[in-house]
Design a protein around this nucleic acid. Structure first.
Lengths: 341, 341
DNA sequence: ATAAAAGTTTTACGCGCGTAAAACTTTAGA
DNA sequence: TCTAAAGTTTTACGCGCGTAAAACTTTTAT
């Protein structure tokens, strides 16, 4: 950290007493040089705080150390949390993560991919928008850039898919609800943004049939990514029409459930499993906020750590040359019992 | 979008019938070339989808078109929202924003600044962690990179500061609470992460004195950025001790209020302004989630749009050469009346 | 001790673009 | 129509680093 500034690798090589190509080798992979050499470079690094010019570095490299992390909507704490997790794993593995949000907009998702392309990333961890995604653009991108799809699958695109087992999610929580009270109806968006929603509905139907109950799917209108508001408005309609044949509502996801809880509050309907409660509400996702709803939301939670670990490791393996056939990994969720159901 | 790939600007210049330096000029600023020239280039662009190599571009430019956007914690929807807003303004102004989160960690904040430095950004929009920030590191960074501080001020660092007027926030909502019921006590963290909290406490004290009421500040323990949990746990203690001399609680921020609402639910205390409610709770920030709490949270909201517009425009002006002395802009908030108070 | 292997130095080239200078061409203004 | 101003082309150099090849040095294994 001494005074005199180092202008480039040439100068730094001189002050560290090592030749420039070796210094270059060190910055590409510190373990590729002899340990005595590494020690000398790192000693010089202590004194002179030099960092290679990343633009010059990446210009001549076919593969940079950049990794793109793309989520559909960063303002959703669920994606923010998983993005943070992935980001840290990238850093730990020696990559330079860059965060992108598609902001719920298919056109912007395409833009993000274009931007990403020009970053020449070693790989990309991509959670697509889903239904609204430009499939062709995704495919083209995956052809050119090693891409691991997570959260929401789109055909058999990219290196692999890692996400949650939506069938297990819904089957498990439906089972719980059936065993502890009236069988649930299923509260969802009519045109969900995300293919996971279809799996959850189907799993609900399967589970209800298996348990010998009549399913009841309530699909509410609403476009876009404002799930809470869609849940709230749809909830009001549902509660007004008294379409409810049961006192138990399983929501397709936690954000819908959060909106529905608000609708219940506004309708003065007490939610929970207590004697004095009129209905039970459960969600799905283990949304970071679900602990703090009133009542706290019973839900089935993604295994955030395992999803991101599996995704990151699969991408790094592929980047580092390990070839493996396309594979879909779906991880089970954990039931989180709280007061709402 | 035709077949034959363009490898570099040389080739693209050839197919567009323009010399390379002029093409280069175009990509730096499309308006700097004659309109007939621009038309020819853009026509060629339609046919050949070429994008300049950003690494080669930035290598020789002292100033890139990159803008860093740094927030303390991206998983907080408040910051996610304002980051999104800033990001779009950067794009609209022709800059390339890159998003960073300090993840609530001062050491990581310093790392982010180091990373940013190597990106040679034209400017940075930085919301510091606050109290925990490494002041010296911030100062050093601001000396080298045009940086606009927002949300949370740290001395007179950087180009300018843009944020909310915390004195107005708290004075306004305290006034509202006093006029509509019992004067509030003030619920806060003992060691808040953020200097805004101190301003809000002081403003509460001022307002209460002005209105002729006895202030009561309740400071709860808790470190870090898990405000909801701190509010919940602190809320339990507060409600248990019956330290409450009033039925009205003004929280230092919405996330604390959200945790406090959960504590009230868990203690079976009905919150709101109805006859059957035991206490009123209000927050501050206009957190994206505050609409969906139960009861929906009365709060005073940041003017997200104006804060980010003012911040972005000030930065762009500075980048584009407009020199102006350091200035602090603090924007007023809007009271949002909901059911909680 | 000797040979083989692994790492290092020297030398040299090129990546794709920014940018400067001088000569040239087009446009705008009177 | 003429002139000045503005824009363009040509030529040329350099940024900071990756990377390759050949000669050299150090380490490891036999």
């Amino acid at each position: 950290m001494a005074g005199n500034k180092i202008r480039n690798m040439e100068e730094f090589a001189r002050v560290s007493g090592i030749s420039r190509p070796t210094v270059s080798k060190y910055f590409n992979d510190p373990d590729s040089v002899r340990s005595s050499t590494r020690a000398r470079i790192e000693a010089a690094l202590e004194l002179h705080d030099y960092r290679p010019n990343i633009y010059a570095m990446n210009q001549n490299r076919k593969l940079t150390k950049n990794v793109g992390v793309v989520v559909p909507l960063l303002s959703d704490p669920y994606f923010a949390e998983i993005a943070r997790n992935l980001e840290q794993r990238c850093i730990a593995a020696g990559y330079r993560p860059t965060l992108f949000s598609s902001h719920g907009d298919p056109a912007f998702e395409v833009e993000v991919l274009e931007t990403l392309r020009s970053l020449k990333p070693a790989g990309v961890l991509l959670a697509p928008l889903g239904r609204a995604s430009d499939r062709q653009a995704l495919e083209n991108f995956c052809r050119d850039v090693p891409t691991l799809i997570f959260d929401s699958s789109v055909d058999e695109i990219g290196l692999a898919f890692v996400g949650s087992d939506n069938f297990q999610f819904t089957a498990h929580i439906t089972d719980y609800l059936c065993r502890t009270g009236e069988p649930p109806c299923f509260f969802e968006m009519k045109t969900p943004a995300n293919p996971n929603a279809h799996r959850r509905r189907q799993s609900y139907l399967n589970a209800m049939e298996e348990f010998g109950h009549t399913p009841n799917v309530i699909s509410v209108e609403g476009e876009g990514w404002g799930f809470e508001e869609i849940g709230r408005l749809g909830g009001h309609e549902m509660l007004q029409d008294e379409r409810l044949s049961t006192n138990t509502i399983l929501c397709s996801n936690d954000r819908l459930a959060i909106g529905l809880l608000t609708a219940c509050y506004e309708k003065n309907i007490r939610v929970g499993r207590g004697e004095d409660c009129a209905i039970r509400i459960a969600g799905q996702d283990g949304h970071p906020h679900s602990r703090y709803t009133c009542p706290p939301l019973t839900t089935i939670s993604h295994n955030y750590d395992m999803v991101s670990q599996t995704a990151a490791e699969a991408l790094f393996a592929a980047i580092e040359g390990q070839v493996s056939p396309w594979k879909s990994t779906r991880l089970e969720g954990t039931l989180i019992l709280r007061d709402s159901a």
